[in-house]
Structures are given as C-alpha cells and as structure tokens.
Design a protein around this nucleic acid. Structure first.
Lengths: 150, 150
DNA sequence: GTGGTATGTTGACATCGTCTACATTAGAGG
DNA sequence: CCTCTAATGTAGACGATGTCAACATACCAC
C-alpha cells in the first residue's frame, strides 16, 4: 500500500480512500487483468486462443501471478470472479460447436494453457519461446465427441 | 519466521540458526514438497500419474502453492530445482516409450495436470471431485508419433 | 453560504524480517 | 577434569509494512 502511495506521489494513507485494504487493491488489479486477458483472446479461435493466453501470461507475468497466485479469495470479490468467468466463457464458447463433453474439453484446454504458463514462468522449462509453446500445444487432441477429434 | 518460531516454542530468532532467511526456509519446505510429489507419483503410469499429481495438490494445497507460487526463485536454490526436475523426469519417463516429440508431449501432459490443479485450487471450477478430474484428463489425447495416439 | 461528501494528511500501533550482541550448551582433545 | 570451539538459543533494536483514528481541505448541492 505504501509503495503504491509512493508511486502515486501521495501520502501513505491516501490509497485507503479508494480501496478498503490491500487485498481489495490487488483484487481490482486482478480483475483488470482478467479483462485484459479476455481482450487478448477476443477474435481468436481454437489454438490461437491458447497461444494468446500464453502470450498474455509471458507479457505480463506479474499480473498473471497476481490473477492466479491464490492470494486473493475469489469468494470475497464477486466482480473478480465474474471477470475470470467471462474470460473462461470465451474459451468454452470455442468448444461449444463440438458435441460431447464440452465442459470437460474446455476445462482441459484451459488447464493445458494455464499450466503451461505457470511452468514457463516458474522456469521449469529450458525453452520459453513461441515455437516451444506452439509445439507443446500442437501435441494435444481433444476427444470431444464419442469419435470426434479437435 | 516469527510464526514458525512461535509454533516451535522458541524465541523469534532461533530459526535464523537453521535458515539463512525466510526464503531459504520456504525453499526447504518446497523441496520437501517436490520429494513428496515424486513419492506420490512413484509406481504410477500414464493417466494414473496425472491423477496422483492432482491428488497431491488437492491434499496439500498450501504446499503446492508454495512449490509453484513463484515466490521462490529457482535459480537461487539448486537443490530445489533438482527436486523439481526429478519429479518432472518421472513424468517424462512415462512418455519415453512412445516415439515422436517426447519432450513436448511430456511438457503438455505436465502442463495439463498442473493447470488443472491451479484452477481447481483457485476455485475456478464448480466441481473438484475426483470424478471431474478423471473426466477432464480423459478428454485429451497426446499425438506423440506422426500417426500414433496415446 | 452551509452542510456534506470525497479526498488527502499526520501520527500512532502492532507486526514482521533481519541484524548485532550476548548467553548457554555440548562435545572433542589435551 | 578442563578448556576451547561450534552449535544453538535469547534479547533488543531497526526499518518497513498494513491499518486505524483524528484532523484537514476541496468541491458540489441546496
């Protein structure tokens, strides 16, 4: 909080006129992040959405960590939960054209790109260039229908 | 640090006799977590390893967050990096029997289960029971060979 | 002009991670 | 047994932080 005030050039307590507490400030920043993420995925389809997701995480790593670092309790900030759900809905919509267990397929796709972001940011992979991301994403198939494949 | 000392029933500075600083303490706990994770996956194969991974995360959520929360810089703790790599190696070994881009396939599998853990822990999914996990993992196929499928 | 609301400031408090200095304990070597 | 040393613990302090209460200022509606 004090650091935020410092950067804004105001006294150390000014932020409390705009945010209830530290967590509320962070929740606002996280919600903004989810809107940015949704914006980044807008218009993309299929694998392009996944790549946009990863690109966002690599471009704004701190923001991504804030959004998904588990430091902010979703239950406490309905606006935050809504922003996150809105982003996820875009991903799920990309799967709705296919039959089968759409919800599970979308969850799997989200998990895949999400985990990839985390592991790259944590430095668990030797490579982190866009080619590596494309190659990893290219490896998976989603069996949405009884026989279908995406 | 002070809380740790409190729980151990010693003075607030005693922990500094055993750990250089807060980050070193957390790094030790994280490394221990990676060993636990490796233990949990030992003996499992294929999807069973993924399920074990998720089970571990759901059983020890705080530990999992510590291990992958990005608060500890891997570069600074070689032992930690080694413990993490060792766990990942198990996963990768499960793919080595198949041809194709083994490294990418293993990375994708790790990303999938890892992202699933994070999203479940963050409360982004309505369900979090073992059935849901099984269903999500069942949806994906890994195209390891030119024509092969796992 | 007056009252109220939004915004900012000052000062204080408890807590935290960390440093320095000092005390205690335990074991090894004479 | 005595002494020296290393390991371990303690006390006190410092700066930084999140937060609260009290007070000040600016602006807008009536």
């Amino acid at each position: 909080m004090r650091e935020a005030a410092r950067r804004a050039g105001v006294s150390h307590n000014a932020p409390y006129r705009h945010f209830a507490d530290r967590e509320a400030l962070l929740a606002t920043l996280a919600a903004q992040g989810f809107e940015m993420l949704g914006q980044a995925m807008r218009g993309q389809t299929g694998r392009g959405m996944g790549e946009a997701y990863v690109r966002f995480a690599l471009q704004y790593p701190q923001r991504f960590r804030l959004m998904f670092g588990g430091q902010i309790r979703l239950e406490k900030y309905p606006r935050l939960r809504a922003a996150a759900a809105s982003a996820f809905d875009q991903l799920q919509a990309a799967f709705s054209a296919y039959g089968g267990d759409v919800r599970s397929a979308a969850a799997a796709a989200w998990s895949l790109v999400h985990g990839l972001c985390h592991l790259i940011l944590d430095g668990h992979f030797a490579q982190r260039d866009e080619d590596f991301v494309k190659r990893v994403l290219a490896v998976v198939r989603f069996a949405v229908g009884p026989q279908r494949s995406l």
